[in-house]
Each structure stands twice: as structure tokens, then as C-alpha cells.
Write a protein that binds this DNA or RNA. Structure first.
Lengths: 338, 338
DNA sequence: TTGTAGGCGTTATCAC
DNA sequence: GTGATAACGCCTACAA
């Protein structure tokens, strides 16, 4: 049941004009008499003619497809970034092919190959947390495919990156806890395969050092992204009798896991233990006490990444574009107000 | 900086074969000697040749693009449905073009036109809450475009629909509250422009009637989707001195808004007032008390919708496909355990 | 200002 | 089994 589309020929026949003239009417860079143009446009509307984008792509040797690779869209982070990406790309006449890797590196390779076969004009990639081998992406880039990395990046990929200033905002967030009077702060770090993890750890450690509060390397603990991860690690720490009076988590969900366990065990938040999250999910204002968190500029990150990619696609030269580092905002809420 | 792609001609020249033979090697429905086939595939791999999907689409008169229209992807509901949609469509070699309407009917019309111009082979649509005029969609369907509606549907569109059994599960959810001992239950309904709103209202009302608990039509109150909407309406009810001992909300967020206001005003949940949400967002297990909610089969809804659409696309006949109604699951949590 | 014709990279229908 | 060749719908020199 395929709808039959009206073609340029149908229109030419209907108006007794050549296809060339019709084409010109739709691409106003050529000379064409105003009246014929209007006549054509009117008739086109009447017959429901629209230039076939596929034929156009074939002749222009461009797919006008942009591939976007994200780890997941279950948390609201990536969907928000996607909104920003779509906003600028669709406005410029591109189609956006969104692919989800489910945090798996095999799936990531698969979807990248699918996008490659779709002849995308460029890719926007946020790596999965498992990813360690980036050879294939580098090969594509070497072959001339414009690629921009965002959020989940790798230093091993030779592409411009759009990121949040994780170091700085982890530093700030930690300082907020220190200013509030917490002295023995632990950090729940993201999986170490992510470069943002290291940066947040560094920001955390620097802040502690600045205030002379770094006690041991045990204060940084790697954990996952889920509430369960946060619960598990918190229970482990408590069972081991670790002493801390604040947690700065790399992620709102694991922070919430911590809150749950602490409350269950009778600790008072924020009086005895302060909590600071990261990412500003919608959960932050729903938990009790409300969770302090670092807000990342999600939609903006999407917009900026898309704009950067468009610049790469349009530029004839091979000018190396610079990374873009975005700032955020800290929401101080009850969970860290000692 | 466009990468130049290897074409079928390059390969033909390199192997001193005709393009026809190359083409055959890649579409094994034709007769071709095994050895030449293997030779071609080997050389293709060597030169990095991949059939150009755009040319293929042009000649096959199919875009292999499917358009998906959703109101938003900020809450996790639609992203989860999208996962299901992508899963089946990508496996079948389709590209998925995802468009967001932001709950605006003008934007909805725009994105549908964009998809139409992209010559999608079919569309999966979930209407925005503002939508009232569906003429354009009906026109497309009349012209032969396969369309499947999901979740946010309209009876005025002549297309198969995939939905949740809102009536039944609203009925069940209300009965759970009644069974728990609540007697004066109010319903926060979704905007009346959505057909799911009416169905949930009917389910609610039927359950009350069955148990002889319907007092007045004031028990159904239309409200929005946000926490703020829930807060506002709850404050209004309390200020007006309305007496109720339970709220069944059409939406987790407005239920959470209700919880907040009630707690702020000193009501005990679930002892004095019981709350039941709808949609099973990730927020449900984070609020306190944890929110009872009706879980909808999100990913499955996506898969089923996509499969239905594929069947429409493949069917030569005009057989009218039937709507699919999916069941869910009620999570009874603290908020409704009197 | 408009028409003619070649070509974009495929597939498919003929011959051979 | 394989090779020409005409489509598919459009753009764009070049000619008129």
C-alpha cells in the first residue's frame, strides 16, 4: 500500500513545460520568469507535488542525515540533550537518526556501522560506559567523516568535544559541602572508564586539598548509576564502619540510594550526614530531604554539539575545531544544609 | 569535507566485471556463480564498497524511513516506548525519524509535514494534548500513508491504535483504593482533550458505582501533568474544604504534587488520605511515602506499534487492522496501604 | 527565459 | 552466468 507520489514529470506534463523549468521554480537560484514560477508553484500545490528528497540527496551526494549515538534514554539526561540537537539540526533541514547503545560497546559498534551505511553526513556520539576500543570511530574520522563527541567522551578520539566542566563543578560542589561545615566527605565516583569520572574525582580531591580535608584515598569510591548501586555501596561503607559526614555523588540516583540507606539506619540528613548529587534529575526535588545537585546544561549541550558538527560539515578546510566546555549551576537544597 | 564513497562502478572496473554482476552479488536472489560472488564480496570489503542506500531507495520507491511523533521526551514514558519502536524497526532495516511536538498542535502539524516531505513509508503518532483538529492526518491516511496511533490517540482518526486499557486499569486502581478502605475518592483526570482521560474517568466512576461510593460529579477534577498542577489543585480542594480520603491521579507527577501539599498541611498518608498514581514513573519509589501506581507496558507498546505498522506497510490489501489493547500491572505501595 | 540531455548509484529486464 | 541498458526523480551545464 505505497502512496504514489507526484513527480516533476507529472507537473511538467500538466503545465506543458520542461522538467528543467519546474526544477528551477523550486530552486530559486536560477533565472525564471516570475509568472511561470508562480504558476508552477500553484499547480504544484494543487497536484500535491513535493520534490523527492531522495532523488535530491542522490544527485547532491549528501544524505542530510545526521547520526546521534547515546548510551540510553531512560534517564532524562540524554532525551534533553536530544531535544537540543534536534532543534538545530531539523531547522537546517537535516534528518536525525537516533541510536541507543544500552551502554554496551558491541551494540555501540553495531549502531555506528548502521549509521555509516546510512551514509550520514556526520555523527554526534556519546560513548557507552563500557567503551574502551575506539579504533573504529577513529578510522571513520580519518576517512573524513565529521564527528563531534559530547558528554561521554574519550581523549583517544581525535574529534572536537562538547563537555560539561566536570572538574570545576565537582570542585564547587565539594566546596559547598565544606562551607556547610562537613569535614569528612566521601565521593561516589562514576565508572572509571569515563573520562568525566576522573575529572570529577580530581575536582573533588582538589577541593579537599585546598581546605586540608583530604584524609585518605579511600574517600573516593567507584560505583554505578543506579539507586541500587548507591544503596549497596552505602551499606558496605556503613558495615565496614567507615566514618564520613557527607557524600558527594557523581550521580543523583546513587545519591538517592545513599539517602535511603542512611535514613533506614537512622542517620539524620543533613544534620549528621550531608548529601550532594550531580546531574539535577527530576528526582532531586522529590526525595526527602530534597537533594542538592549540580545542574548540567543538557539542552544547550545538544544545541552546541549540533552547531559544532554543522560547522565541521560546512567547512571545506580541515581546521581543527576547539572543544567547548560548558558551565552549570548548583542547586543547594535541604540535603546539604547543615 | 565530504568523504567520497566507492561506487558499484569503481568495483566493476577494478574487477573487470559489469555493474549488473556486482549488484547481483549483493542481492542473492539472482543467479551468480559462487566464486565470482565471493571474489566480488572480498574486493568490495577491500575497497570499502557499500551499496548506496539512497540510490537503492530511489529505485525501490521506498524511503525505508519511519516517522515517529511524540509529545515530549522529558518524562521517561515516551523514551521507553521509543526504545521498543527502534528495536523492531531498526532490525528490519528501517531508519527511525523521531520528532517531538512539545505538546503543541501547531508544532505537531509542522513535524508531520516534515516527515511527509521526508517520504516516510509510515508514521507512528502519539498526539499532543492540545490536538483537536486531525484533518491533516486523515488526509495523509486517505492518500494511502500507513499510520498507527499509540497511547495518545483520537477516535476521529481512521487508523489502528495501540493503547493501554485505560478503562480497565483505572477501574482496578480505584478498586484497590476501595479495598484498602477508602470511601471518598477523588480523581485527578488528564486534560479532557485526550481520549485516555475519558476512559480513565469512566473506569474510576464505574468502580465507585459498583461499590456504591459515587457521591457527586465533583469527584472528578481535570488537571495537568506536572507536580505543580497537582499541588495547585490539591491546595484548591483543601481551601474549599472538600472532604476526601483518597486521590486517584491520572499521572504520577500530579499525585506527587498532592502528596507534597497534604504532607505540608499535616495530613497523614496513607492513614488519613490514600494516593494512587498512574504511569509508574521512576519517581514513584523515590517519594515518601512510596507511591502506588499503575505500570503501563511502555517498551512493549513501542514494539507492538512498530510491528503493526510494518504489517500495514507490507500488506498489499487494504485489510483494516484491529486496535491492540495492552494490559498493565498495579504496584501497591505505602501511599495506598491504609 | 526556457528546453535538451547527461548523470547521480542503484536495480531489473532484456539479450547473449 | 554474465553484460548492456533503461529506468528511478532530480539537478545543471549547455544549447536554443
Amino acid at each position: 500500500m505505497k502512496p504514489r507520489h507526484v513527480t516533476i514529470k507529472d507537473l511538467a506534463k500538466a503545465l506543458d513545460l520542461s522538467v528543467a523549468t519546474i526544477s528551477r521554480a523550486f530552486n530559486d537560484k536560477y533565472d525564471i520568469k516570475k509568472e511561470t514560477r508562480e504558476l508552477i508553484l500553484k499547480k504544484a500545490d494543487e497536484l500535491g507535488y513535493k520534490p523527492n528528497p531522495i532523488a535530491k540527496k542522490l544527485i547532491q551526494q549528501r544524505s542530510f542525515n545526521i547520526g546521534v549515538v547515546v548510551p540510553e534514554f531512560i534517564t532524562s539526561f540524554f532525551p534533553k540533550v536530544l531535544s537540543g540537537i534536534q532543534e538545530v539540526l531539523i531547522a537546517k533541514g537535516y534528518q536525525v537518526l537516533i541510536m541507543e547503545t544500552g551502554e554496551s560497546c558491541e551494540r555501540e559498534l553495531e549502531v555506528i556501522k548502521t549509521l555509516e551505511e546510512s551514509m550520514v553526513d556526520g555523527m554526534l556520539i556519546s560513548l557507552s560506559k563500557e567503551t574502551h576500543n575506539v579504533d573504529y570511530i577513529n578510522k571513520l574520522i580519518t576517512n573524513g567523516l565529521p564527528v563531534v563527541l559530547f558528554n561521554r567522551v574519550s581523549e583517544d578520539i581525535m574529534a572536537p568535544k562538547v563537555l560539561f566542566d566536570d572538574y570545576k563543578w565537582a570542585f564547587f560542589a565539594t566546596e559547598r559541602l565544606i562551607e556547610a561545615g562537613y569535614k569528612n566527605i566521601f565521593h561516589y565516583a562514576a565508572p572509571s572508564s569515563l573520562s568525566l569520572s576522573k575529572k570529577r574525582i580530581n575536582g573533588f580531591v582538589s577541593a579537599l586539598k585546598k581546605h586540608g580535608l583530604l584524609e585518605s584515598c579511600e574517600q573516593v569510591i567507584e560505583t554505578g548509576f543506579t539507586i541500587q548501586d548507591g544503596e549497596a555501596i552505602t551499606e558496605k561503607l556503613l558495615d565496614e564502619g567507615k566514618a564520613f559526614d557527607a557524600i558527594f555523588s557523581s550521580n543523583d540516583r546513587s545519591a538517592i540510594g545513599a539517602i535511603r540507606v542512611l535514613k533506614r539506619r537512622g542517620y539524620k540528613i543533613p544534620e549528621e550526614i550531608g548529601i550532594m548529587g550531580f546531574s539535577e534529575s527530576s528526582l532531586a526535588t522529590v526525595v526527602e530531604p530534597e537533594l542538592s545537585s549540580v545542574e548540567q546544561p543538557t539542552t544547550k549541550m545538544g544545541r552546541v554539539s549540533a552547531e559544532l558538527l554543522l560547522r565541521m560539515i560546512d567547512s571545506e578546510t580541515n581546521e581543527q575545531l576547539h572543544d567547548v566546555v560548558l558551565g552549570g549551576k548548583i542547586h543547594v537544597r535541604e540535603s546539604s544544609m547543615k
